[in-house]
Computed example of a mutant assay.
Amino acid sequence: MTLLFCIITALYVMLIATFAIGFDKIKVFTTVKTPEKTRFSIIIAFRNEAEHLPNLLNSLTELHYPKDLFEIIFVDDDSDDGSAELIYNYLKNQPELQFVILQNERLSHSPKKDAITKAVGEANNAWIVTTDADCTVPNTWLRSLDSYIQTNACSVIAAPVSYSDQSSFLKRFQALDFLSLIGATIGGFGIKKPFMCNGANFIYKKDIFLKLKGFTGNESIASGDDIFLLEKALLDNPEQVHYLKSKTAIVSTHPQPNLKQLLEQRKRWAAKTSRYSSVFGKGVGLIVLTMNLALVLAIPFVITNVISTVIWTIIVFLKTSIDAILLYKTCRFYNSSFSIPFYLFSSMLYPVFTVIVAFSSVITNYQWKGRVFRQ
């Protein structure tokens, strides 16, 4: 048993160390001052987001980018809280802003994929940019994307997302967890093994979406509008898939307000892992889950002397240390503080949280936006 735990720990440490090395291989991009020329279609699917939409709309109206070079396509997924009216009333006073509000057409098991597919069909511009209704975008967002596109040969771009609110323990815990995902995402791109991205800041050419037949083949999976498209793009032309590591392109989103909604969100994220086509992505998920499961199971083994306290201490030290390295690098990129006491306390809770999410995502359905989705 001790040997097994040591092997699991060694695999995990090597994996995270590789991500930490890969993280540094993706250099921070600095916007180059060139005339703007890229035309964007920003797609935002929404369902009952009246609470968050004002912040998003305000950030969109403040974009430092020529208004004739982008349009905003909203897709209403059966909202009943006045979200569509809120958008129209807010933007009707912005005559220079090009926008349209579409009604979603449910054709699959995934409302969001249906919404994006409909919007892409209506898009007038060459580049698609997706974000979420509970996000805010920096005024430099499109300028950064344009600069990167003009200076790099690419057709698909993953870009960074952050949590805007860390006012409670639960929200800080989520932010730390999210930063670990971002670190692994950037690290994966750095070692040329991309396996994650975030639909809140995802950019691709319209003709690539059409060439890849959009979400055809994974319509039965409710989530994954970002990752499954990323996987298709990587199979088609991996050299054209990039990560934009830019501080001026970071989109902010909100953490979940309570533990129940956090669990439902993470179950939704976890549910698609088994459907990855990437062997590497599946392997990463398996190693991470096994490591956290091992830490949970190690406690009774230590109590019953199956594993010595010294070995268990070394395992915990190695995992905590390697995680801290990757997290510190990610925090430094985000200009976010890295609290060692908070990290150490959270690291004791994280294995239990991860195991609960993983197993509940397999044996239970999850709720999202007032709907129940089956695995």
Rank of each mutant, 00 (worst) to 15 (best):
Met1Cys: 02
Ile8Ala: 03
Thr9Pro: 07
Ala10Lys: 14
Ala10Thr: 15
Tyr12Ser: 00
Tyr12Thr: 02
Ala17Val: 14
Thr18Pro: 04
Thr18Tyr: 00
Thr18Trp: 04
Ile21His: 03
Ile21Cys: 03
Gly22Tyr: 03
Ile26His: 10
Val28Phe: 11
Phe29His: 03
Thr34Arg: 06
Thr34Leu: 07
Lys37Pro: 10
Phe40Leu: 04
Arg47Tyr: 05
Asn48Pro: 00
Glu49Pro: 05
Ala50Arg: 13
Glu51Asp: 13
Leu56Ala: 10
Leu56Ser: 02
Leu57Lys: 06
Asn58Trp: 15
Leu63Met: 10
Pro66Asn: 12
Leu69Arg: 14
Phe70Val: 05
Phe70Arg: 10
Ser79Tyr: 05
Gly82Val: 09
Ser83Asp: 13
Ala84Met: 04
Ile87Trp: 06
Asn89Leu: 10
Gln94Pro: 00
Val100Ser: 12
Ile101Lys: 11
Ile101Gly: 08
Arg106Thr: 14
Arg106Gly: 09
Leu107Phe: 11
Lys112Tyr: 05
Lys113Met: 11
Lys113Pro: 04
Ala115Asp: 09
Ala115Phe: 13
Lys118Pro: 08
Val120Met: 12
Asn125Lys: 13
Ala133Tyr: 03
Cys135Leu: 00
Val137Met: 06
Val137Leu: 07
Pro138Lys: 02
Trp141Ala: 00
Ser144Ile: 05
Leu145Asn: 00
Gln150Thr: 14
Gln150His: 14
Gln150Arg: 13
Val161Ala: 05
Ser164Asp: 02
Asp165Ser: 08
Phe173Thr: 02
Gln174Trp: 09
Asp177Ile: 12
Phe178Gly: 08
Leu179Thr: 07
Gly188Val: 02
Phe189Met: 00
Cys197Gly: 15
Gly199Phe: 12
Phe202Glu: 11
Tyr204Pro: 05
Asp207Asn: 10
Asp207Ala: 01
Lys213Ser: 02
Lys213Ala: 07
Gly214Met: 10
Gly217Thr: 06
Gly224Arg: 01
Ile227Asp: 08
Leu230His: 06
Pro238Phe: 13
His242Tyr: 12
Thr248Ile: 01
Ile250Trp: 02
Val251Ala: 08
Val251Trp: 05
Val251Leu: 07
Gln256Ser: 12
Asn258Val: 10
Leu259Cys: 07
Leu259Ser: 02
Lys260Ala: 12
Gln261Tyr: 13
Trp269Asp: 15
Ala270Ser: 12
Ala271Cys: 09
Ala271Gly: 06
Lys272Trp: 09
Ser277Asp: 11
Gly283Phe: 03
Val284Trp: 01
Gly285Cys: 14
Val288Glu: 03
Asn292Trp: 10
Leu293Phe: 15
Ala294Trp: 03
Ala298Thr: 08
Ala298Met: 15
Ile299Thr: 09
Asn305Gln: 11
Val310Gly: 05
Thr313Gly: 10
Ile314Phe: 07
Ile315Leu: 12
Phe317Lys: 04
Lys319Gln: 15
Thr320Trp: 08
Leu326His: 05
Leu326Met: 09
Asn335His: 07
Ser336Trp: 09
Ser336Lys: 13
Ser337Lys: 14
Leu344Cys: 09
Tyr350Cys: 07
Tyr350Asn: 11
Tyr350Trp: 14
Phe353Gly: 06
Thr354Cys: 09
Thr354Ile: 02
Val355Lys: 01
Asn365Phe: 10
Gln367Trp: 00
Val372Glu: 15
